[in-house]
Simulated assay, not measured.
Amino acid sequence: MGSHLHHLSYCFLASYGTQRTLILNTKGYNGNPEGLETFFLPLSETCTSYSKSQMVPWPGKEDSLVVYFPDWDRPNPRPKYFPKSIPKDISERLMRLHGDPFAWWIGQFFKYALRRNKDFQNYTDNLAREMGYESPVVGLQIRRSDKLQREAIYIDLSVYMEEVDGFYKELELRQTVAQRRIFLATDDPEVIPEIKKKYPEYKLLYNPGSVDSTRKSQRKKGPSVQYFLADVYFLARSDYLVCGMTSNICRLSYELMQTLHADASARVSSVDRDYYFHFEVGNVVKARFPHKPRRTGELEMQEGDVVDRKDVLSRFSKHPSKNNGFQWGTNTRTKKSGYYPVYKTVEILEKANVQSFERIDRSKTE
């Protein structure tokens, strides 16, 4: 489901980049007759239908009435406004004001697409009261099961809880914390008794329905979508988020977080790798400061060097290590690979020259 929602972001970007209205048909999605509209407001109240006879394949032409966007995330041709890029017209302000501009940009689309309807709002509000969900609370997402077979490695609970403990220790320097809370979203029910036994000082919050729905036989049934979306809702609204960015749910919650704060880029701790986007182009950083290796495996950098990070996911799955402020990359100048200190680099984002909506002659559409 997390992957499906991230595909939706590509549809939104294509709509924005071509200045077309996005019409999304999710009826019957995972056992829900009304699809995503079971939980969220429709994308539009007026533009809801189209004629298949007028449909042409991507990318169509400027005068094409209906363009079909493919159901994969590597369309041909691939425009420059796809990940990781931000619109050029807002890039200067965005990069000056935000610690993770691309996450903020994608978050805006999800903020609009995931506007709760009345029924889902009532459900999440009631669930929050039942759980005792209130600030301060750390959102903890632990993805295991099938994820371990393909894209990630097993990470012990203690690694997650060290980050949770660090947040609360810092918070307690500034204010009194009467109760340490955790909101847990997981597909491994065994984590619940493990936390209760090893960390009794924490109040553990979770949705019982969500835990029960994580069995593979239940995941594609109607109610499971509601439980999943509620988990994302509460993770995004936590004061701090501890998860693994190899998970779509972690990245989605982080992206939504950016829409709830002026800058939430520092409100997350990933136990595996840094934030990325599937099928992104680029994924490079530039060294702001030189770095001389202090131990085996570190990468030498000079100021201005460009470091390519595209193979970081495969590297992590083969050589896991605790996230300690270093990431894997290849220096494009020296062609050597190793771990570099993230704080000494800055991400290089593509600035897409997308036409501003301010230029649209709205008189022609009225």
Results as ranks from 00 to 15, higher is better:
residue 350 E to S: 03
residue 61 K to D: 08
residue 267 R to T: 10
residue 183 F to A: 01
residue 142 I to C: 06
residue 41 L to G: 03
residue 96 R to H: 13
residue 302 Q to S: 15
residue 172 E to N: 03
residue 351 K to E: 14
residue 76 N to D: 09
residue 58 W to D: 03
residue 164 V to A: 06
residue 126 N to S: 15
residue 236 A to H: 06
residue 349 L to D: 00
residue 82 F to S: 05
residue 337 S to D: 09
residue 159 V to L: 06
residue 301 M to I: 07
residue 186 T to P: 02
residue 187 D to H: 02
residue 115 R to S: 13
residue 132 G to T: 00
residue 62 E to K: 12
residue 315 R to H: 15
residue 300 E to A: 11
residue 210 S to A: 14
residue 289 F to N: 13
residue 199 Y to Q: 08
residue 150 R to F: 14
residue 142 I to G: 03
residue 242 V to G: 05
residue 248 N to I: 05
residue 171 L to I: 04
residue 360 I to T: 14
residue 326 F to C: 01
residue 194 E to R: 14
residue 35 G to L: 00
residue 334 T to R: 08
residue 282 G to A: 11
residue 84 K to S: 11
residue 355 Q to L: 10
residue 337 S to A: 14
residue 135 S to E: 07
residue 53 S to C: 06
residue 240 Y to R: 09
residue 268 V to N: 12
residue 306 V to F: 05
residue 207 N to P: 01
residue 24 L to Q: 01
residue 229 L to W: 08
residue 38 T to A: 05
residue 318 K to L: 11
residue 351 K to D: 02
residue 87 P to L: 06
residue 86 I to S: 03
residue 301 M to W: 00
residue 251 R to C: 08
residue 219 R to L: 08
residue 262 A to C: 12
residue 17 G to V: 05
residue 350 E to L: 01
residue 315 R to P: 00
residue 268 V to I: 15
residue 141 Q to A: 14
residue 251 R to H: 10
residue 116 R to D: 15
residue 273 R to L: 12
residue 232 V to E: 09
residue 269 S to N: 15
residue 35 G to R: 00
residue 257 M to Y: 06
residue 155 I to Y: 03
residue 302 Q to H: 11
residue 322 K to F: 02
residue 181 R to I: 03
residue 124 T to Q: 07
residue 304 G to C: 05
residue 255 E to C: 14
residue 245 M to C: 10
residue 79 P to W: 03
residue 238 S to A: 15
residue 254 Y to V: 08
residue 175 Q to C: 08
residue 317 S to M: 09
residue 36 L to S: 04
residue 147 K to A: 12
residue 305 D to Y: 00
residue 113 A to C: 07
residue 66 V to T: 08
residue 252 L to P: 04
residue 260 L to M: 15
residue 142 I to Q: 02
residue 80 K to A: 07
residue 217 S to V: 04
residue 63 D to L: 07
residue 30 N to V: 00
residue 176 T to C: 07
residue 99 G to R: 09
residue 77 P to E: 09
residue 338 G to L: 01
residue 163 E to N: 15
residue 134 E to W: 04
residue 64 S to G: 10
residue 349 L to Y: 04
residue 325 G to I: 05
residue 324 N to E: 14
residue 9 S to R: 11
residue 85 S to M: 00
residue 174 R to T: 11
residue 60 G to S: 01
residue 255 E to S: 12
residue 45 E to A: 12
residue 99 G to D: 09
residue 353 N to S: 11
residue 118 K to W: 09
residue 100 D to I: 04
residue 135 S to P: 02
residue 49 S to M: 00
residue 117 N to Q: 11
residue 125 D to M: 03
residue 295 R to K: 15
residue 143 R to T: 04
residue 245 M to Y: 01
residue 121 Q to H: 11
residue 265 S to M: 10
residue 104 W to H: 15
residue 179 Q to T: 15
residue 101 P to N: 07
residue 242 V to H: 06
